[in-house]
């Protein structure tokens, strides 16, 4: 379950990054949408990192070498 959540979070991050690239490279580019998509990307990444920490604290996942 935790792994699925991590993968889903990662997929959402990739999608927001992809959306920013789309708005950056199409036509004349859309600066506002690029900035917005990248902001979402950063927020989701921090959320995923926090999720990893919480999952580790609660013993749901264990990293290699622990």
């Amino acid at each position: 379950m935790t792994r699925l959540l991590i993968l889903a979070g990662f997929l959402a991050i990739v999608l927001s990054l992809g959306s920013a690239l789309f708005h950056l490279t199409r036509g004349k580019g859309d600066s506002k949408k690029v900035a917005r998509a990248l902001t979402i990307r950063v927020a989701l990444s921090i959320l995923l990192f926090v999720l990893l920490l919480v999952a580790w604290q609660l013993g749901w996942i264990q990293p290699h070498g622990s």
Partner: peptide, 25 residues
Amino acid sequence: FEGVAWYWHFVDVVWLFLFIFVYWL
């Protein structure tokens, strides 16, 4: 600026992927 900023975000996401799949899962 936007191109380089996007690239930085890309490098960041690759690291996150790496952190999860190389060090964790």
